[in-house]
Design a protein around this nucleic acid. Structure first.
Lengths: 193, 193
DNA sequence: GTTGAAAATGAACGGTCGTTCAAGATAAAA
DNA sequence: TTTTATCTTGAACGACCGTTCATTTTCAAC
Protein backbone atom coordinates (compact mmCIF):
# COMPACT_ATOMS: atom_id res chain seq x y z
CA UNK A 1 0.00 0.00 0.00
CA UNK A 2 1.49 3.28 -1.08
CA UNK A 3 -0.85 5.65 0.64
CA UNK A 4 -3.99 5.26 2.73
CA UNK A 5 -7.03 7.43 3.26
CA UNK A 6 -6.73 10.11 5.90
CA UNK A 7 -10.43 10.42 6.60
CA UNK A 8 -12.61 7.98 8.52
CA UNK A 9 -15.13 6.62 6.04
CA UNK A 10 -17.60 5.45 8.69
CA UNK A 11 -17.40 8.76 10.51
CA UNK A 12 -17.99 10.69 7.31
CA UNK A 13 -20.92 8.45 6.43
CA UNK A 14 -22.44 8.92 9.87
CA UNK A 15 -22.21 12.70 9.59
CA UNK A 16 -23.67 12.71 6.08
CA UNK A 17 -26.47 10.43 7.24
CA UNK A 18 -27.45 12.81 10.01
CA UNK A 19 -27.48 15.72 7.59
CA UNK A 20 -29.64 13.86 5.05
CA UNK A 21 -31.88 12.63 7.86
CA UNK A 22 -32.42 16.18 9.07
CA UNK A 23 -32.85 18.07 5.82
CA UNK A 24 -33.82 15.41 3.29
CA UNK A 25 -32.25 14.59 -0.05
CA UNK A 26 -33.02 17.71 -2.07
CA UNK A 27 -32.44 20.31 0.62
CA UNK A 28 -29.02 18.87 1.46
CA UNK A 29 -26.38 20.14 -0.93
CA UNK A 30 -23.04 18.54 -1.56
CA UNK A 31 -21.49 21.72 -0.18
CA UNK A 32 -23.41 21.21 3.09
CA UNK A 33 -21.92 17.73 3.20
CA UNK A 34 -18.42 18.97 2.38
CA UNK A 35 -18.62 21.27 5.40
CA UNK A 36 -20.10 18.62 7.72
CA UNK A 37 -17.58 15.89 6.91
CA UNK A 38 -14.64 18.25 6.27
CA UNK A 39 -13.74 16.71 2.94
CA UNK A 40 -13.21 18.31 -0.44
CA UNK A 41 -15.46 17.39 -3.40
CA UNK A 42 -12.80 15.23 -5.04
CA UNK A 43 -12.43 13.01 -1.98
CA UNK A 44 -16.16 12.68 -1.48
CA UNK A 45 -16.72 11.66 -5.10
CA UNK A 46 -13.76 9.27 -5.03
CA UNK A 47 -15.23 7.68 -1.92
CA UNK A 48 -18.97 7.65 -2.58
CA UNK A 49 -19.35 8.18 -6.31
CA UNK A 50 -22.24 10.64 -6.39
CA UNK A 51 -24.85 12.33 -4.25
CA UNK A 52 -27.25 9.48 -4.97
CA UNK A 53 -24.61 6.91 -4.09
CA UNK A 54 -23.85 8.65 -0.81
CA UNK A 55 -27.55 8.91 0.01
CA UNK A 56 -28.01 5.22 -0.71
CA UNK A 57 -25.24 4.35 1.72
CA UNK A 58 -26.76 6.77 4.22
CA UNK A 59 -30.08 4.91 3.99
CA UNK A 60 -28.30 1.64 4.76
CA UNK A 61 -26.35 3.20 7.59
CA UNK A 62 -29.58 4.52 9.07
CA UNK A 63 -31.40 1.20 8.73
CA UNK A 64 -28.48 -0.65 10.32
CA UNK A 65 -28.74 1.68 13.29
CA UNK A 66 -32.47 1.13 13.63
CA UNK A 67 -32.13 -2.66 13.49
CA UNK A 68 -29.35 -2.45 16.07
CA UNK A 69 -31.65 -0.59 18.45
CA UNK A 70 -34.31 -3.29 18.02
CA UNK A 71 -31.76 -6.01 18.80
CA UNK A 72 -30.59 -4.04 21.81
CA UNK A 73 -34.18 -3.83 23.11
CA UNK A 74 -34.51 -7.59 22.62
CA UNK A 75 -31.44 -8.19 24.77
CA UNK A 76 -32.49 -5.88 27.58
CA UNK A 77 -36.02 -7.29 27.88
CA UNK A 78 -36.93 -10.87 28.73
CA UNK A 79 -40.36 -10.41 27.19
CA UNK A 80 -40.42 -9.92 23.40
CA UNK A 81 -43.60 -7.88 23.79
CA UNK A 82 -41.97 -5.56 26.31
CA UNK A 83 -39.02 -5.17 23.94
CA UNK A 84 -41.33 -4.15 21.11
CA UNK A 85 -43.33 -1.72 23.24
CA UNK A 86 -40.16 -0.21 24.64
CA UNK A 87 -38.79 0.24 21.14
CA UNK A 88 -41.93 2.04 19.97
CA UNK A 89 -41.98 4.33 22.99
CA UNK A 90 -38.31 5.07 22.64
CA UNK A 91 -38.88 6.22 19.05
CA UNK A 92 -41.49 8.79 19.95
CA UNK A 93 -41.06 10.01 23.49
CA UNK A 94 -37.59 9.40 24.87
CA UNK A 95 -34.79 11.92 24.93
CA UNK A 96 -35.30 13.03 21.32
CA UNK A 97 -33.41 16.32 21.34
CA UNK A 98 -30.13 15.20 19.82
CA UNK A 99 -31.87 13.36 16.98
CA UNK A 100 -31.81 14.98 13.52
CA UNK A 101 -35.55 14.49 12.92
CA UNK A 102 -38.72 13.24 14.59
CA UNK A 103 -39.36 11.08 11.57
CA UNK A 104 -37.89 7.83 10.34
CA UNK A 105 -35.39 8.67 7.62
CA UNK A 106 -36.77 5.87 5.45
CA UNK A 107 -40.33 7.23 5.66
CA UNK A 108 -39.07 10.75 5.02
CA UNK A 109 -37.37 9.43 1.91
CA UNK A 110 -40.53 7.69 0.70
CA UNK A 111 -42.40 10.93 1.28
CA UNK A 112 -39.91 13.20 -0.46
CA UNK A 113 -38.72 11.27 -3.48
CA UNK A 114 -40.58 10.41 -6.66
CA UNK A 115 -39.89 8.02 -9.52
CA UNK A 116 -37.21 10.51 -10.62
CA UNK A 117 -35.04 8.71 -8.05
CA UNK A 118 -36.50 5.24 -8.50
CA UNK A 119 -33.43 3.44 -7.21
CA UNK A 120 -33.43 5.31 -3.92
CA UNK A 121 -37.15 4.73 -3.52
CA UNK A 122 -36.70 0.99 -4.05
CA UNK A 123 -33.85 0.97 -1.57
CA UNK A 124 -35.95 2.69 1.10
CA UNK A 125 -38.83 0.27 0.51
CA UNK A 126 -36.54 -2.74 0.91
CA UNK A 127 -35.01 -1.42 4.12
CA UNK A 128 -38.43 -0.66 5.59
CA UNK A 129 -39.33 -4.22 4.82
CA UNK A 130 -36.36 -5.40 6.91
CA UNK A 131 -37.67 -3.46 9.90
CA UNK A 132 -41.07 -5.04 9.42
CA UNK A 133 -39.38 -8.44 9.34
CA UNK A 134 -37.76 -7.65 12.68
CA UNK A 135 -41.17 -6.73 14.11
CA UNK A 136 -42.63 -9.98 12.78
CA UNK A 137 -39.84 -12.01 14.35
CA UNK A 138 -40.39 -10.31 17.70
CA UNK A 139 -44.14 -10.86 17.51
CA UNK A 140 -43.71 -14.53 16.60
CA UNK A 141 -41.52 -14.91 19.68
CA UNK A 142 -44.30 -13.32 21.72
CA UNK A 143 -46.81 -15.78 20.29
CA UNK A 144 -44.51 -18.73 20.92
CA UNK A 145 -43.95 -17.53 24.48
CA UNK A 146 -47.70 -17.33 25.04
CA UNK A 147 -47.64 -13.55 25.45
CA UNK A 148 -50.06 -13.24 22.55
CA UNK A 149 -52.97 -15.48 21.59
CA UNK A 150 -51.81 -18.37 19.46
CA UNK A 151 -54.38 -17.50 16.78
CA UNK A 152 -52.71 -14.12 16.09
CA UNK A 153 -50.83 -13.68 12.81
CA UNK A 154 -47.34 -12.30 13.43
CA UNK A 155 -46.89 -10.88 9.93
CA UNK A 156 -50.28 -9.19 9.94
CA UNK A 157 -49.61 -7.73 13.36
CA UNK A 158 -46.17 -6.59 12.22
CA UNK A 159 -47.77 -4.62 9.37
CA UNK A 160 -50.16 -3.04 11.85
CA UNK A 161 -47.33 -2.05 14.19
CA UNK A 162 -45.21 -0.75 11.32
CA UNK A 163 -48.13 1.33 10.10
CA UNK A 164 -48.84 2.69 13.56
CA UNK A 165 -45.20 3.63 14.13
CA UNK A 166 -45.23 5.55 10.85
CA UNK A 167 -48.44 7.24 11.96
CA UNK A 168 -47.20 8.02 15.45
CA UNK A 169 -43.99 9.64 14.26
CA UNK A 170 -45.80 11.67 11.60
CA UNK A 171 -48.39 12.73 14.14
CA UNK A 172 -45.66 13.71 16.58
CA UNK A 173 -44.36 16.15 14.00
CA UNK A 174 -47.76 17.86 13.78
CA UNK A 175 -48.66 17.85 17.45
CA UNK A 176 -45.97 18.23 20.12
CA UNK A 177 -48.26 17.78 23.15
CA UNK A 178 -46.42 15.08 25.12
CA UNK A 179 -49.40 13.99 27.21
CA UNK A 180 -51.54 13.49 24.12
CA UNK A 181 -48.69 11.60 22.47
CA UNK A 182 -48.32 9.21 25.41
CA UNK A 183 -52.05 8.56 25.31
CA UNK A 184 -51.87 7.99 21.58
CA UNK A 185 -49.09 5.44 21.99
CA UNK A 186 -51.19 3.61 24.56
CA UNK A 187 -54.14 3.55 22.17
CA UNK A 188 -51.93 2.36 19.33
CA UNK A 189 -50.28 -0.39 21.33
CA UNK A 190 -53.63 -1.60 22.66
CA UNK A 191 -53.79 -3.79 19.58
CA UNK A 192 -51.16 -5.96 21.31
CA UNK A 193 -53.75 -7.52 23.63
CA UNK B 1 -60.70 48.76 -14.01
CA UNK B 2 -58.35 49.54 -16.83
CA UNK B 3 -57.21 46.04 -17.60
CA UNK B 4 -57.97 42.66 -16.12
CA UNK B 5 -55.95 39.47 -15.73
CA UNK B 6 -56.10 37.02 -18.60
CA UNK B 7 -55.29 33.93 -16.61
CA UNK B 8 -57.59 32.03 -14.24
CA UNK B 9 -56.09 32.39 -10.78
CA UNK B 10 -57.95 29.41 -9.34
CA UNK B 11 -57.00 27.22 -12.26
CA UNK B 12 -53.34 28.22 -11.97
CA UNK B 13 -53.41 27.56 -8.24
CA UNK B 14 -54.97 24.14 -8.77
CA UNK B 15 -52.29 23.17 -11.27
CA UNK B 16 -49.49 24.44 -9.05
CA UNK B 17 -50.98 22.57 -6.10
CA UNK B 18 -50.95 19.28 -8.00
CA UNK B 19 -47.35 19.82 -8.99
CA UNK B 20 -46.24 20.64 -5.44
CA UNK B 21 -48.30 17.72 -4.14
CA UNK B 22 -46.56 15.34 -6.52
CA UNK B 23 -42.95 16.50 -6.29
CA UNK B 24 -42.77 18.39 -3.02
CA UNK B 25 -41.54 21.91 -2.34
CA UNK B 26 -37.84 21.61 -3.13
CA UNK B 27 -38.07 19.36 -6.18
CA UNK B 28 -40.63 21.63 -7.83
CA UNK B 29 -38.92 24.53 -9.58
CA UNK B 30 -40.58 27.78 -10.53
CA UNK B 31 -39.82 26.82 -14.13
CA UNK B 32 -41.80 23.59 -13.68
CA UNK B 33 -44.68 25.73 -12.47
CA UNK B 34 -44.31 28.22 -15.31
CA UNK B 35 -44.74 25.34 -17.75
CA UNK B 36 -47.65 23.77 -15.87
CA UNK B 37 -49.70 26.94 -15.49
CA UNK B 38 -48.55 28.53 -18.77
CA UNK B 39 -47.59 31.82 -17.20
CA UNK B 40 -44.40 33.83 -17.39
CA UNK B 41 -42.35 34.52 -14.22
CA UNK B 42 -43.48 38.14 -14.02
CA UNK B 43 -47.16 37.19 -13.90
CA UNK B 44 -46.62 34.44 -11.36
CA UNK B 45 -44.69 36.75 -9.04
CA UNK B 46 -47.23 39.54 -9.49
CA UNK B 47 -49.96 37.09 -8.58
CA UNK B 48 -48.43 34.98 -5.82
CA UNK B 49 -45.42 36.95 -4.58
CA UNK B 50 -42.88 34.17 -4.21
CA UNK B 51 -42.41 30.41 -4.33
CA UNK B 52 -43.15 30.25 -0.62
CA UNK B 53 -46.25 32.38 -1.04
CA UNK B 54 -47.52 30.17 -3.83
CA UNK B 55 -46.81 27.03 -1.81
CA UNK B 56 -48.68 28.46 1.14
CA UNK B 57 -51.73 29.08 -1.01
CA UNK B 58 -51.34 25.59 -2.45
CA UNK B 59 -51.47 24.11 1.05
CA UNK B 60 -54.71 25.96 1.72
CA UNK B 61 -56.15 24.92 -1.62
CA UNK B 62 -55.29 21.31 -0.84
CA UNK B 63 -56.77 21.43 2.66
CA UNK B 64 -59.96 23.01 1.33
CA UNK B 65 -60.31 20.10 -1.06
CA UNK B 66 -59.80 17.54 1.68
CA UNK B 67 -62.36 19.16 3.95
CA UNK B 68 -64.78 19.30 1.02
CA UNK B 69 -64.44 15.55 0.52
CA UNK B 70 -65.19 14.97 4.19
CA UNK B 71 -68.34 17.12 3.98
CA UNK B 72 -69.33 15.27 0.84
CA UNK B 73 -69.00 11.94 2.64
CA UNK B 74 -71.11 13.31 5.49
CA UNK B 75 -73.87 14.20 3.06
CA UNK B 76 -73.91 10.88 1.25
CA UNK B 77 -74.01 8.76 4.42
CA UNK B 78 -76.75 8.81 7.06
CA UNK B 79 -74.36 7.33 9.61
CA UNK B 80 -71.47 9.58 10.69
CA UNK B 81 -69.41 6.49 11.36
CA UNK B 82 -69.99 5.16 7.86
CA UNK B 83 -69.04 8.56 6.46
CA UNK B 84 -65.75 8.48 8.36
CA UNK B 85 -64.94 4.92 7.37
CA UNK B 86 -65.80 5.63 3.77
CA UNK B 87 -63.54 8.68 3.80
CA UNK B 88 -60.62 6.69 5.16
CA UNK B 89 -61.08 3.89 2.63
CA UNK B 90 -61.42 6.36 -0.19
CA UNK B 91 -58.07 7.91 0.73
CA UNK B 92 -56.14 4.67 0.49
CA UNK B 93 -57.81 2.24 -1.85
CA UNK B 94 -60.16 3.90 -4.28
CA UNK B 95 -59.33 4.83 -7.83
CA UNK B 96 -56.06 6.53 -6.93
CA UNK B 97 -54.40 6.68 -10.33
CA UNK B 98 -55.17 10.30 -11.24
CA UNK B 99 -53.95 11.57 -7.87
CA UNK B 100 -50.54 13.29 -7.73
CA UNK B 101 -49.35 11.30 -4.69
CA UNK B 102 -50.36 8.50 -2.35
CA UNK B 103 -49.61 10.77 0.57
CA UNK B 104 -51.42 13.68 2.11
CA UNK B 105 -49.77 16.86 0.87
CA UNK B 106 -49.81 18.29 4.39
CA UNK B 107 -47.97 15.29 5.82
CA UNK B 108 -45.51 15.33 2.91
CA UNK B 109 -44.83 18.96 3.74
CA UNK B 110 -44.28 18.19 7.42
CA UNK B 111 -41.89 15.43 6.38
CA UNK B 112 -39.93 17.45 3.85
CA UNK B 113 -39.54 20.88 5.38
CA UNK B 114 -37.44 21.99 8.33
CA UNK B 115 -37.34 25.12 10.42
CA UNK B 116 -35.70 26.79 7.42
CA UNK B 117 -39.29 27.24 6.22
CA UNK B 118 -40.90 27.72 9.60
CA UNK B 119 -43.89 29.61 8.26
CA UNK B 120 -44.86 26.82 5.86
CA UNK B 121 -44.42 24.24 8.61
CA UNK B 122 -46.72 26.18 10.91
CA UNK B 123 -49.26 26.52 8.13
CA UNK B 124 -49.27 22.77 7.47
CA UNK B 125 -49.66 22.02 11.18
CA UNK B 126 -52.65 24.35 11.47
CA UNK B 127 -54.37 22.86 8.43
CA UNK B 128 -53.82 19.32 9.69
CA UNK B 129 -55.46 20.43 12.90
CA UNK B 130 -58.53 21.50 10.91
CA UNK B 131 -58.84 18.00 9.47
CA UNK B 132 -58.57 16.54 12.96
CA UNK B 133 -61.32 18.92 14.06
CA UNK B 134 -63.53 17.57 11.26
CA UNK B 135 -62.85 14.03 12.45
CA UNK B 136 -63.72 15.00 16.01
CA UNK B 137 -66.97 16.57 14.90
CA UNK B 138 -67.90 13.44 12.97
CA UNK B 139 -67.05 11.20 15.91
CA UNK B 140 -69.04 13.36 18.32
CA UNK B 141 -72.02 12.98 16.00
CA UNK B 142 -71.48 9.22 16.10
CA UNK B 143 -71.45 9.27 19.89
CA UNK B 144 -74.55 11.45 20.03
CA UNK B 145 -76.32 9.11 17.60
CA UNK B 146 -75.44 6.12 19.78
CA UNK B 147 -73.15 4.60 17.16
CA UNK B 148 -70.27 4.73 19.60
CA UNK B 149 -70.28 4.15 23.37
CA UNK B 150 -71.12 7.31 25.23
CA UNK B 151 -67.97 7.01 27.33
CA UNK B 152 -65.74 7.44 24.26
CA UNK B 153 -63.80 10.69 23.88
CA UNK B 154 -64.34 12.19 20.44
CA UNK B 155 -61.13 14.28 20.47
CA UNK B 156 -59.00 11.40 21.63
CA UNK B 157 -60.51 9.12 19.02
CA UNK B 158 -59.97 11.81 16.38
CA UNK B 159 -56.26 11.90 17.19
CA UNK B 160 -56.14 8.14 16.88
CA UNK B 161 -57.89 8.19 13.49
CA UNK B 162 -55.71 11.03 12.26
CA UNK B 163 -52.60 9.14 13.29
CA UNK B 164 -53.81 5.93 11.65
CA UNK B 165 -54.64 7.71 8.41
CA UNK B 166 -51.12 9.16 8.34
CA UNK B 167 -49.77 5.68 9.00
CA UNK B 168 -51.95 3.98 6.42
CA UNK B 169 -50.99 6.37 3.65
CA UNK B 170 -47.30 6.18 4.49
CA UNK B 171 -47.51 2.42 4.63
CA UNK B 172 -49.29 2.34 1.28
CA UNK B 173 -46.28 4.06 -0.23
CA UNK B 174 -43.97 1.31 1.01
CA UNK B 175 -46.17 -1.69 0.30
CA UNK B 176 -48.51 -1.73 -2.69
CA UNK B 177 -50.17 -5.09 -1.95
CA UNK B 178 -53.87 -4.20 -2.16
CA UNK B 179 -55.13 -7.20 -0.18
CA UNK B 180 -52.74 -6.48 2.68
CA UNK B 181 -53.77 -2.82 2.59
CA UNK B 182 -57.48 -3.66 2.84
CA UNK B 183 -56.74 -5.90 5.80
CA UNK B 184 -54.67 -3.15 7.39
CA UNK B 185 -57.51 -0.67 7.03
CA UNK B 186 -59.86 -3.13 8.71
CA UNK B 187 -57.42 -3.56 11.58
CA UNK B 188 -56.98 0.20 11.89
CA UNK B 189 -60.70 0.96 11.84
CA UNK B 190 -61.40 -1.76 14.40
CA UNK B 191 -60.78 0.90 17.05
CA UNK B 192 -64.18 2.32 16.06
CA UNK B 193 -66.02 -0.44 18.00
C1' DG C 1 17.11 10.47 -0.18
C1' DT C 2 14.70 9.30 -4.03
C1' DT C 3 10.83 7.35 -6.19
C1' DG C 4 6.06 6.70 -7.56
C1' DA C 5 1.42 5.36 -6.86
C1' DA C 6 -2.43 6.74 -4.24
C1' DA C 7 -4.98 10.41 -1.90
C1' DA C 8 -6.37 15.10 -1.26
C1' DT C 9 -7.13 19.53 -3.07
C1' DG C 10 -10.00 23.35 -4.81
C1' DA C 11 -10.70 26.11 -8.93
C1' DA C 12 -13.70 25.72 -12.44
C1' DC C 13 -17.52 23.79 -15.52
C1' DG C 14 -22.13 23.99 -17.53
C1' DG C 15 -26.54 24.10 -15.81
C1' DT C 16 -30.43 25.45 -12.96
C1' DC C 17 -32.21 28.00 -9.13
C1' DG C 18 -35.60 31.89 -7.45
C1' DT C 19 -36.36 36.38 -8.74
C1' DT C 20 -36.42 41.09 -11.05
C1' DC C 21 -37.69 44.64 -14.20
C1' DA C 22 -37.56 47.42 -18.45
C1' DA C 23 -40.16 47.07 -22.47
C1' DG C 24 -44.26 45.72 -25.03
C1' DA C 25 -49.24 44.51 -25.32
C1' DT C 26 -53.91 45.24 -23.84
C1' DA C 27 -58.31 47.36 -23.36
C1' DA C 28 -61.53 50.49 -20.62
C1' DA C 29 -62.08 55.50 -20.36
C1' DA C 30 -61.87 60.02 -22.40
C1' DT D 1 -58.50 57.97 -31.80
C1' DT D 2 -55.83 58.95 -28.06
C1' DT D 3 -54.80 58.27 -23.44
C1' DT D 4 -53.46 55.71 -19.55
C1' DA D 5 -53.31 52.44 -15.98
C1' DT D 6 -52.68 47.63 -15.84
C1' DC D 7 -51.18 43.19 -17.27
C1' DT D 8 -47.82 40.33 -19.68
C1' DT D 9 -43.47 39.18 -21.41
C1' DG D 10 -38.90 37.05 -21.35
C1' DA D 11 -34.09 38.27 -21.15
C1' DA D 12 -31.07 38.70 -17.59
C1' DC D 13 -29.16 38.58 -12.67
C1' DG D 14 -26.28 36.68 -9.04
C1' DA D 15 -26.19 32.59 -6.44
C1' DC D 16 -25.85 27.96 -5.98
C1' DC D 17 -26.24 23.20 -7.92
C1' DG D 18 -23.73 18.44 -8.70
C1' DT D 19 -19.59 17.16 -10.63
C1' DT D 20 -14.83 16.97 -12.79
C1' DC D 21 -9.90 16.90 -13.07
C1' DA D 22 -5.25 18.95 -13.40
C1' DT D 23 -2.38 19.84 -9.70
C1' DT D 24 -0.22 19.22 -5.28
C1' DT D 25 0.67 16.53 -1.23
C1' DT D 26 1.51 12.36 1.12
C1' DC D 27 4.20 8.42 2.59
C1' DA D 28 5.48 3.25 2.20
C1' DA D 29 9.05 0.98 -0.54
C1' DC D 30 13.51 0.91 -2.23
Amino acid sequence: MVNSAKYDRQDALAKATNLFWEKGFHATSMRNIQDAVDMRPGSIYACFGSKEGLFKEALHHYADGTLAVIRQQMQSHDSPLDALKSFVRCLITDQRQDVPSDLCMLVKTLAELTEDNAELLTEARQLIRLVEDAFAELLQQAIDAGELDADKDARRLARLIQMQVMGLRSYARANKDQAQLEQLIDDALSCLA
